[in-house]
Amino acid sequence: MSQTHTSPAADTAAGSARGAGGAAPPAARARRIRRDDVVKFMFVVPAAVYVALFFGYPVVKNIIMGFQEYTTQTFFTGEAPWVGLANYVTAMSSQLFVPALWNTAVFTFGSIAGQFAIGLALAVFFHRKFPLGGFMRAVLLLPWLLPLIVASATWRSIMELDGGVLNQTLQAVGLDAVPWLTDPDLALTAVILVNIWVGIPFNVTILYGGLQEIPEEQYEAAALDGATGWRAFWHITLPNLKGVISVVLILGVVYTLKVIDIILGLTNGGPANATQTIAIRSYQSSFVDFEFGVGAAFSNVLILISLVFALVYLRTTRRSAN
């Protein structure tokens, strides 16, 4: 009977289930319920183990490290003396903390604003059908495929003061060369511009997906009422995209807060600390100064900020679900 339908592998794997199938009706029900629970449990186990191992452990470890004097020595001896809030005091009393916090805010807000505005514009643009539209949308994804270290090295040479393509172009049209990466007043802007470029594909892809979901009928109905162009965008596109937009923005914030490779590749936090962010402070404390406890304190500050945005996200999605 039923056994003949199952594959041999499933048969062996199900193991003891063999007996329960046909025989002994009274006891079987209780056992079957328990077996159901086991099956359910086993489906949860991989995810739970994964989350505990790869999310829970690092986060807990990082929080604990923030309270320890964790140095190179610790790796060998395993000894990390408890120092209470000393690492947080070191991190927050450093002269760079407030500027780094400010830079993190400017970097995150600037990047997200640029990525989102350009991403949405491009998504709406590509939503119209036109020849080669699909191909160009694919080309748009290229920055996403490029390893960040390659992207930042390329942009560094593009933004080079004397021989960079960008400045040569500016000079060709009669403008002055701009010290993109060497002027402390400009470097953060330059880094934001590159990060916007990196983030556009992500925004376009998700927003374009959201646009596809909007029923064409709504636009047709609105057109009958005279709402086209901007009014259609404002009253149909945006309200329909609300959920997608909140996902894009929240993920964008969390991704952007922790950016280090682009900044390291472009300026290393310089010139004169102009592009120091909390993420860069964390990296440099840990892997340049070997003060892992202080590095952990910085990244815990970052986790806390991310957490606030995650909670905002949960609230908004719950509200829209209700």
């Binding site: 039923s2 592998a9 499933a10 794997a13 199900a14 077996r35 099956v39 489906f43 991989p46």
Partner: peptide
């Protein structure tokens, strides 16, 4: 139905 359930438990085992 029984078959499906068996397959499920097999899959779960395979995952663990």
């Amino acid at each position: 139905r029984t078959t499906r359930r068996r397959l499920l438990s097999a899959a779960a085992t395979a995952a663990v």
